[in-house]
Design a protein around this nucleic acid. Structure first.
Lengths: 326, 326
DNA sequence: TTGTAGGCGTTATCAT
DNA sequence: ATGATAACGCCTACAA
């Protein structure tokens, strides 16, 4: 038989093939341990069973969880996952897009939130547009200036909820340890914080800028203890930072939650190790949904926006304010 | 000019090309935003600028750190990184190898240690042999029954060192919370523990089996507190487990390190969050070295074995035994 | 039902 | 110095 016939039976072609030859082919293929070249297939079909994932830092639990979600559905659906890290830089992201683009990846997932006014964003957008036109499905997992379908959770509401909870504990002098000033995620969480404070008739006690990492929290803790009167509570932009604050405070001899309450956002695994009060954010689910959005045929709304739920997760780094009777 | 000429200038061919045409081609390429198809290139050259990474669980800091190392050098060298998770199952690893194989990946890195007597290992070995014959460089980052070059650190020595340290603190009733009984890593660490105990003339106080995860440690802690006399110290197979033990003990009202000392191995980021005494293991460096081994032309010894150093990192979950005067 | 042949985008061999 | 052209491995009209 010809290679054409073989090809027809090996991939589920609708083209009719007699049962005898079909079996003959199948058998031969099995004997020879035949493996079709995905490269050749991708070349001719203009599509490779690969999904690209662009994150900021694979060692950050936030992204690890997302990656786990993406990889798990990709694997289940028979796709390979290419992951690249870009430290929230649109420039780096663009490079990765260009690196993956020639492979005709089936789907591309942007997990990191962008920077406001990142001057390379428009070039990235252009590259993405090209990809989409060539058939690649693209999705983002956080707010940012990219015109693609989105799967996310409500950062502002999450921050509002944790702040509201801390307020309900009777605290009044509440500090915010913020993330990068130009990060959408950071901005949204700050807004949620401020909104909740406003709703409670409270004024932010102090606000510190920083990054999304543990070290940033550690440093902020030092500022806090050396800035005069301690706050009643401090809310951090995420768990990494909250844990840094927690450690820094305790190192300085400050009892948590005895003297100061500390809370974070995300509920990444380490937060359980320190019994951190936080809000559980659907990171793994974000990865799942994101991968499905680009791989599943039951396509999500073309440029819809899916919102996943979060929930408050009180633990032991927060306590009722001493002045409050229960 | 012909596409042949164009091809010659676009890739660094040694074939002579006149300077005028070279410029003409370069210019045209720039105008058209020409991007060579890596697919076609890979198809004809039988090699794609991709490195495959097979780990057990991307959410485990142990592997996250390794992945970070691999991805960083891959990116720097212009390679894409495909990561797949296989929960230490040779069967799953084999599937991933088969999935990547048709892409003619340049290098393949096995990060997880294998299971002793994993019946699928020989099939995996066969698949690997095929890959190698087709030019793919393969390396493993832990001991296991795979005949490929290796980059690793000394698990047994690491376990010996931490045990020796705990002994030096004056503890005698020392418990080991072990990992999976059939994991090479687990076995080596146990041997290091036992060797150090023997050297100190001590008998292991108790030994619990489990997994490599936090939950396993948490569970073991419950067994420990409900088993009669508390040990002086407990050493865990890794940080995840050690932290679980730590939390479980404290939840049960046991003071650490006041009543019991706890130590782990690996020094993954979370261990700093709880000030865990541990031994720093070169995870990130393992990723770096592994990627270099398969991508760098200054090839490592064909099937050599590179040993990376570790170092003891005492922190605050261990203390001198009360009976010991200093 | 089965076979033929063109083409996907590049590289490399062989002429010219 | 430059240009055809086969080949990489597979898919898919189009013929037979």
């Amino acid at each position: 038989m010809s290679i054409a016939t073989a090809s027809r039976v090996l991939n589920g072609s609708t083209h009719p093939v007699s049962e005898k030859t079909r079996l003959r082919v199948l058998d031969a293929a099995a004997q020879l341990g035949y493996k079709p070249s995905l490269l050749a297939q991708a070349l001719v079909k203009g599509r490779a069973p690969i999904v690209g994932l662009i994150i900021a830092d694979i060692a950050d639990p936030y992204f690890s969880q997302i990656a786990r979600g993406v990889e798990s559905v990709a694997r289940r659906l028979g796709y390979l996952t290419i992951v690249s890290t870009a430290q929230r830089s649109a420039r780096a992201e663009l490079e990765h897009v260009q690196a993956m683009s020639p492979y005709h990846v089936t789907g591309l997932v942007f997990a990191a939130s962008g920077r406001v006014d990142d001057s390379d964003t428009h070039m990235l957008q252009a590259a993405i547009k090209d990809l989409q036109n060539s058939g690649t499905r693209v999705v983002k997992l956080a707010h940012r200036q990219l015109d693609v379908p989105t799967v996310l959770f409500d950062n502002q509401a999450a921050a509002y909820d944790i702040t509201d909870y801390v307020v309900s504990l009777g605290h009044q002098r509440i500090a915010l340890v913020d993330g990068p000033a130009d990060s959408y995620t950071s901005i949204e969480r700050r807004q949620g914080f401020e909104q909740a404070m406003r709703a409670a008739g409270l004024e932010p006690y102090m606000r510190l800028d920083g990054g999304f990492e543990y070290e940033s929290g550690l440093e902020s803790a030092h500022h806090i203890v050396s800035a005069g009167t301690l706050p009643d509570a401090v809310i951090a932009v995420n768990d990494n930072v909250a844990i840094g604050v927690l450690m820094g405070l305790r190192q300085a001899g400050v009892d948590v939650p005895g003297m100061v309450s500390v809370a974070g956002i995300d509920d990444t695994p380490p937060s359980r190790y320190v019994a951190l009060t936080t809000v559980s954010t659907p990171l793994y689910e974000l990865g799942i949904a994101g991968a499905q959005a680009v791989l599943s045929d039951l396509a999500r709304a073309r440029d819809g926006q899916t919102l996943l739920p979060h929930r408050l997760t009180p633990r032991s780094t927060t306590a009722r304010h001493p002045s409050v009777r229960r």
